[in-house]
Amino acid sequence: MSSNAGPTHDAKPPRPSAIAGYEDWPAYVQQHPRYQAHSAEAQELADALGVPDVPQPPEASVHWEETYDGVTTSQLSWQLGYGPRSTGWLIRPAGVPGPLPGVLALHCHSGNKFGGADRLVELPASHPLAANARPGYDGRALASEIARQGFVVLAHDTFAWGSRRFDLSVPPWRTGSALEARQAQWREDGVVPSEAEVYNAAAGFHEETVAKTAGLLGTSLAGMVAHDDLAALEVLAGLPDVDPDRLGSIGFSGGGGRSLALAVLSPRIKSYVVTCMMTTFQSLLPAHLDAHSWLLQTPGLWKLDEWPALTARSGADQLLVQYALGDELFPEDGMRAAHRMLGSLHNPGNGSPAAYIGSFWPGGHLFTAEMQQEALAFLSSSLGARDTQPLSPLSCQGPS
């Protein structure tokens, strides 16, 4: 007896995961309630971003530690409830007794998701990540510089960056098609891309898939990033040599947006810095909208408030915003409108001390050495740090 099953066809390869490395992400969001903020105003932002609750501070493990150039640097990691382990870098002044004020240093977007917080840290030449470039930071290791001024600093990889990046070794089909086109262009141009360049190209295309997944789950890219940042803040606040009542945050570009969101969501933040990440949403239309990623452009956020107005929802005592007049990502009129709005919100003009400081600098989308000096001086003054090493002398004409 014979059977005729008809003609056979080559089986299609299985469709790859669109969220490889994060298959447990949907269940995590579904099983955790919304983050409960400290005020009704902050809760509105938590709800708009869809920030999941951070159930308890994660337990950090120390993998590497070394003292050099006046600071002790430790490589930490912790496991959140979803995705790969988070890497964090803890930098503190060597031999200086605590408790010391703490700062969460928040890395930028920069289109570089292959790396994360390592771009903020100075590492000895023997470390595998020592040669990592620091585009946008004027060649300086921001987190290490802050620690030299008397702070305990934690810089961590957030959701989708560095140790927390998605696995795109077998990219989802839509991402893979776009990546093939980019690789064809590289071949035509005679370019041999590095592993990081290939990953960052794929991750740039994949960000839309991440944003779509987040939207389906009732959260957002910014909401998941804020979740990771809140968890890292709890790690920092729980360290024995950190004063939990003197905590601040700082960030450049996308890190500046993270700094603002964190200051609204957590009452632990007393002072914060936003560098090259301030304008009005109105000014982004129509020409500057495509200059920014999903990290800024959460659907519906503008309906809640203008970007600078969100700062009024924070309980922080002081805020420094640094603007670059030649910033190609923001129109000057939008930055100046944000500056006026922030002044009216935070500086009463009745003899009370100003809570907001805004400075305008020449140049493009960069966190220059001079701007970093201003930011470190602001954090030292507002959080009461004891300088342990003087800042490097620089020629600077000051903000314009």
Rank of each mutant, 00 (worst) to 15 (best):
G81M: 09
S382I: 01
Y356G: 02
T72E: 11
T72H: 12
I146V: 10
G358W: 02
Q183D: 04
H109M: 14
F205N: 12
S3H: 15
L49D: 02
R386G: 08
G6C: 01
E145P: 03
L379N: 11
N4Y: 10
T158L: 02
L154Q: 08
L100S: 11
P128R: 11
F281R: 01
S381Q: 15
V192N: 09
G255S: 10
A231F: 12
E188L: 06
R386S: 13
G50W: 06
P33I: 07
F367C: 06
P171E: 12
R258A: 10
R85H: 15
G70V: 04
I91V: 14
V225R: 02
P13K: 13
G81K: 11
D53F: 12
V62S: 15
L76I: 10
S61N: 04
S271H: 07
R182P: 02
S352D: 11
E234L: 13
G384P: 00
Y35R: 15
H109P: 12
V321W: 02
P390W: 03
A385Q: 00
A203Q: 09
A312D: 08
L376H: 13
Y199H: 05
A117F: 07
D317P: 09
E197H: 03
G6S: 03
G363M: 03
W64M: 04
Y28H: 09
L216P: 07
A263H: 09
V225P: 01
A232D: 06
S2I: 15
D138P: 04
L106E: 05
A309F: 11
T158H: 08
A11W: 11
V273C: 00
T72S: 13
D189L: 14
S314I: 10
T279H: 07
P135E: 14
V153F: 15
S352E: 08
S39K: 09
L236R: 07
S283R: 03
W361Y: 08
H365T: 06
M371F: 00
L45W: 04
M341A: 03
K270T: 13
S163V: 09
P393I: 04
L216K: 15
E180V: 03
G70H: 09
T368P: 00
T87P: 01
L49V: 01
P97W: 05
Y199K: 00
Y22E: 06
T275C: 11
A125W: 13
T158A: 08
D10Y: 05
F378R: 00
H63C: 10
G349L: 00
A20E: 10
R134Y: 01
R164H: 03
A309H: 06
S61K: 10
A46C: 13
T368M: 01
P101D: 12
K212Q: 08
A184L: 06
Q36H: 08
V264K: 14
A377Y: 12
L394A: 11
C396P: 15
L319M: 05
R85T: 15
W161T: 14
T209M: 07
D387E: 15
P93G: 04
P390M: 07
A117I: 00
H346R: 05
G176W: 05
F252E: 09
H206D: 08
T209W: 06
S74C: 09
I91M: 07
S86C: 10
P399G: 09
S395W: 14
L262K: 01
F330C: 04
I269A: 01
L329F: 12
P353Y: 07
H109G: 08
G326W: 04
L179D: 12
H206S: 13
P244I: 10
G70F: 10
P393H: 09
T175K: 07
S382V: 01
G343P: 01
G111I: 00
G248F: 06
